Amino acid sequence: MSAALKRGWCPSLFRPMESGDGWLARIRPREGVVGEPVIAALAEAAARHGNGLIEVTSRANLQIRGLRPDSIAPFTEAMLAAGAADPDEAIEARANIIVSPLLGADPAIAAETAEIARAIRHGLADPKFAGLPAKFGFLLDGGGALTLGDLGLDIMLRASGAVRWELRCGGNTLTLDAADAASRALGLAAEFVGRARPGPARHAGPSRLGFVACVDGLAGAVLIMPPFGQMRVEQLAALGALAREYGDGGLRPTPWKSLAVGGVSVSDAAALLAAATALGFISAPGDSRLDIATCAGAGRCSRGEIDTHEAAAWLAARRPAGAALLHLSGCPKGCAHPGPAPLMLVGRAGRLDFLTDGRAADPPALRGLSLIETPAVLETAA
């Protein structure tokens, strides 16, 4: 891949990144949950200081779009005042940690999971970690009703029994006691300071949507998804209100670009799902929008060569649910789905290139298609 296609860093609250519609900042939820006070503050601040768009990322973060140079500082101050981030810039810069999405809401998750997550987070403040590779990440899967499946990051810790954990990195696995998990993970991370990442593939897989029951079967979580991972602040605020009414008040971003509401009773699940659907969220499998992976696109990303969200919505209305995965990329970087996809459309100067079983940067089979031409091409190739 050429230098011109090099991906940017993972933005944080203290280190936003410039994009096509302004600057991006991310909220990295501590222990995986965005609490009630933060939801309200985030919705207000993103509307005041950004362009009102918020995304759920594949790192289980919330990404705020459209910040301006003069609004970055007041947005940061508002988030710190709400407790949305650690005031230690070093922690926020390095704490790329994905935890079990239902941590704190599912009693079946290993009890030591939160403690391990905190220890890793605060350990990363040590200046010796300043040279960790960009996007270096930790995965912490404590089990429960919603595991992280085959999702892979640079260093992975997975509960494997009573106070026992598996530490995995680069194809190697070590089983150890929970008490040693954080220190061993940090020790391993220190070996990558100044070096290249191990770089395992992330296989997030399809998102589970709807109600997920926890161990007692009487309560659990509801998972919903903003179409193509993006919502407006009004939707976030309204969903936060639903989380207060039907659940524990928090929102849990997942690496599947969905949001989980914990503490939902079986009897309340249907009402919550119906209300979320009315707000514009996807609340059940079988929606054709779930079969399209897409990025921010033109107008939001400086590299985007086509409006991907508009094109994806148009295509979703013309594809049957359950069709082969389509990766619609605004440019050859392929940020939304780095691995091969069965069907691939790549924006090029307002038109689309097409290929099958490949990545966005691969040579296309067809070039310069109009959007109107693509449904027939996709149907023939499927």
Rank of each mutant, 00 (worst) to 15 (best):
A317L: 10
F138R: 02
A159S: 09
R252N: 14
I282A: 01
G240M: 05
S207Y: 12
A336C: 14
L272N: 10
A95P: 01
P198S: 11
K135W: 05
A85S: 07
A46G: 14
T173E: 05
E44R: 14
A4C: 10
L371H: 00
A204L: 13
L328H: 03
R59A: 03
L378N: 02
S19W: 07
L378W: 00
F211S: 05
L371G: 00
E92V: 15
S302W: 03
D287S: 01
M231P: 15
R208F: 04
C295D: 14
L186I: 08
P198C: 15
L343N: 14
L167I: 13
A159V: 04
T113A: 09
G131D: 12
G143E: 07
G83K: 11
G229Y: 05
D126K: 05
A119N: 03
A311L: 09
H49K: 11
A185M: 06
F14I: 01
A238W: 04
P29S: 12
I64P: 04
N61I: 05
R252W: 10
R252S: 09
L139F: 04
R30C: 11
V346G: 01
E18Q: 12
D291N: 09
S302Y: 06
A260P: 00
A313W: 04
G286E: 05
S58E: 06
G194D: 11
R26F: 14
A311W: 15
D248Y: 08
G66M: 08
A130S: 13
I155M: 10
T277K: 13
A114S: 11
A278Q: 03
A269T: 12
F228V: 11
G152R: 14
P206M: 05
F75P: 00
R48Y: 07
P127F: 07
R68V: 09
K6N: 04
A243N: 07
A159R: 09
I54E: 09
P198L: 13
A278E: 08
V56S: 01
R28K: 15
R7T: 13
M225L: 13
A349Q: 12
P16V: 09
V266G: 10
G170D: 15
R367M: 12
D86Q: 10
T380Y: 13
V233G: 01
A271W: 07
D106A: 15
D357W: 09
G104E: 06
L124Q: 00
A179N: 13
I91Y: 04
